[in-house]
């Protein structure tokens, strides 16, 4: 059961988005977030939605998967929408009942806020996590942040930690499964009982897990030293990242998109309320 969780939610594929340089993708994701917050007009929201849907379609990630990714956010979306509907005051009163006044502006705000949240999540996932392997992502972060080394920020160490964490997550998940089975064989019960009892039931799982994690860390440290690891200094990398024409193309598309939003905001807002 634990094994079914896939961290980072990377879906291997060969779409343009998969092939784009991970460093570029991180920058594009940031640009995309900025773009989402630049949207001020209904027409802008239409463009944003169309752009995001196009991203999903070209990524090759199944729509079902994307929808499933939105699911945990549904509560926040509904909550924001309700708050907007109830508390936005405007000029076009639609419904008035007891102390509740619903304005057209409120409905519009609710719709736009929902679109904004969903786009943020879907867009960044499609640009980054769904289409970039965790290792490429870590690598890209290290390279992008490498100028910070001048300020004595341990960029390499941070990236190394990320890599090792990613490497050991499946191992530790498997180990958790095994320890749980072993303690179940000794009559441990993880499913029934009151909340505090259930939390306590995990002690026999967590302690061996920690002990084992520390042992692994010890072993790994020695193994790394034996492979001449001495921190980031003087280190080279096997894979060099090269920018391609398609990366430039991606940047141009994103720039066009942002420009489009700005233009629509100003010249063709299509305000209906």
């Amino acid at each position: 059961m634990l094994r079914d969780i896939t961290l980072g939610q990377f879906f291997p594929g060969s779409s343009v988005l998969h092939k784009t340089d991970p460093r570029v993708k991180i920058l594009l994701a940031i640009a995309y977030i900025v773009a989402v917050f630049l949207v001020k007009s209904p027409s802008g929201y239409i463009l944003l939605s169309a752009f995001t849907i196009t991203l999903v379609l070209i990524s090759g990630v199944k729509v079902k998967v994307v929808l499933k990714g939105i699911k945990p956010l549904i509560f926040i979306v509904i909550f924001t929408a309700v708050i907007n509907i109830l508390f936005t005051k405007g000029e076009n009163l639609l419904v008035s009942w007891w102390i509740i006044n619903i304005y057209a502006e409120g409905l519009a705000n609710a719709l736009f806020m929902s679109l904004r949240i969903i786009s943020l999540l879907v867009g960044t996932s499609v640009i980054l996590t769904y289409t970039t392997s965790p290792i490429a992502l870590t690598d890209a972060i290290e390279r992008l942040l490498s100028p910070l080394r001048v300020l004595h920020i341990p960029v390499h160490e941070f990236a190394m930690m990320m890599t090792i964490a990613l490497r050991f997550i499946p191992t530790l998940i498997e180990e958790t499964d095994k320890i749980m089975s072993a303690q179940k064989s000794r009559g441990a019960d993880f499913q029934t009982g009151k909340l505090h009892e259930r939390v306590r039931a995990f002690v026999p799982v967590l302690i061996p897990l920690f002990v084992s994690a520390f042992r692994r860390a010890d072993d790994l440290a020695v193994a790394m030293e034996c492979r001449c690891y001495r921190g980031g200094r003087g280190r080279t990398r096997m894979t060099k990242l090269h920018l391609h024409l398609r990366d430039l193309f991606a940047v141009v598309v994103m720039a066009a998109f942002i420009a489009g939003i700005v233009v629509l905001n100003k010249y063709l807002p299509l305000n209906f309320v």
Partner: peptide
């Protein structure tokens, strides 16, 4: 040195990246 526990000496999440770990530490050309 090759150790006992195969899980506790591999560093990277991809086989070839792991094999590259040593020479990368030595500063060998890509």
């Amino acid at each position: 040195m090759v150790f006992q526990n195969p899980d506790n000496q591999l560093v990277a999440t991809v086989v070839e990246e792991d094999v590259a770990f040593g020479p990368e530490n030595l500063g060998v050309r890509p």
